[in-house]
């Protein structure tokens, strides 16, 4: 354990640590707390210059107003329409590709793998013009399906890296044993490897959900109108309309941030397992 456990330190040091923890947390989350408080501040407070003090009342009506006066509910629905199919598609495809790359020693194996890995790192901008063009030509511009297809393809790169390493970590004898028993390759995938991939599938689902939910760039490139716009791009558009209406912007921000935050808290273990993939092995 490093640093030395605080339990071994002297009394005052321990106390200081216990006090420092919440203070550090408040400082660290200051922007967030500020926005959260503002989202509950009545408009009159802002008009009166009460930006920092205790709100004169707790204004849940800000949230009501956001949903009533703006299409944010619709945007959120769009985000779900993009995110959930992407999670299913990308995780599903990468189970297959990860299995192929982990289990078979075909000639191009490492090269295909590195292509997937390298694809993860490239700047989106190098894809922007052709992908937009492709989406337009396919008649999918300005639709959630257009976004889904791109996200599935792109996230498959990251997910493949993850799945492949995960399957490599399984004992290979499981697969060989099944082969000797006369089990076909597809059955091996379906009945042996897939059930054992559950933790990886959970981790990736949460991660991909967060990544795709939070995507802003592609939401602006592949979507123009309200009817397919995800909440990130929608929030940006609303920000333009609500000039200086910070209580509404704040409430909208909180609403937009909520689904991934909930996801994170519900599936924290899986989330962190996904993010720190490989961070501990040499």
């Amino acid at each position: 354990m490093f640093p030395t456990p605080i339990q071994k330190a002297s009394g005052p040091t321990r106390l200081a640590y216990q006090i420092a923890l919440p203070i550090a947390l408040v400082i660290w989350l200051f922007p967030l707390i500020g926005v959260a408080v503002t989202s509950l501040r009545p408009a009159s407070d802002l008009a009166a210059g009460n930006y920092f003090g205790v709100p004169s009342s707790i204004a849940f009506e800000n949230y009501a107003a956001v949903f009533r006066d703006s299409p944010i509910g619709w945007y959120i629905l769009n985000s779900f329409k993009v995110t959930i199919p992407t999670v299913i598609g990308a995780v599903g495809l990468s189970c297959l590709t990860g299995f192929a790359l982990a289990v078979y020693g075909f000639r191009a194996n490492l090269w295909v793998f590195f292509a997937f890995v390298a694809g993860n790192f490239i700047p989106f901008q190098i894809l922007m013009v052709p992908v937009r063009d492709l989406t337009l030509k396919a008649g999918l511009y300005d639709s959630t399906l257009g976004l889904v297809l791109f996200h599935v393809a792109f996230q498959t790169g990251f997910c493949t890296l993850f799945m492949r390493n995960f399957i490599k970590g399984m004992p290979f004898a499981l697969i060989e044993s099944a082969r000797v028993e006369g089990v076909s390759e597809w059955q091996i995938f379906r009945h042996i490897v897939l059930p054992l991939m559950r933790p990886a599938i959970a981790a990736l689902s949460v991660l991909v959900f967060t990544f795709v939910w939070n995507d802003y760039f592609w939401a602006t490139v592949l979507v123009q109108g309200q009817h397919a716009m995800p909440v990130t791009a929608g929030l940006y558009a609303l920000n333009g309309q609500w000039v200086a209406a910070w209580h509404l912007v704040s409430a909208g921000s909180i609403v937009a941030a909520l689904p991934p935050v909930l996801m994170f808290f519900l599936m924290q273990r899986h989330f962190i397992a996904g993010l720190t993939l490989g961070a501990t092995k040499g």
Partner: peptide, 15 residues
Amino acid sequence: GPSDRGVAMVFQSYA
């Protein structure tokens, strides 16, 4: 292929 040889194998790690 291994499945058609009429053999069964017991692995060191049991698998």
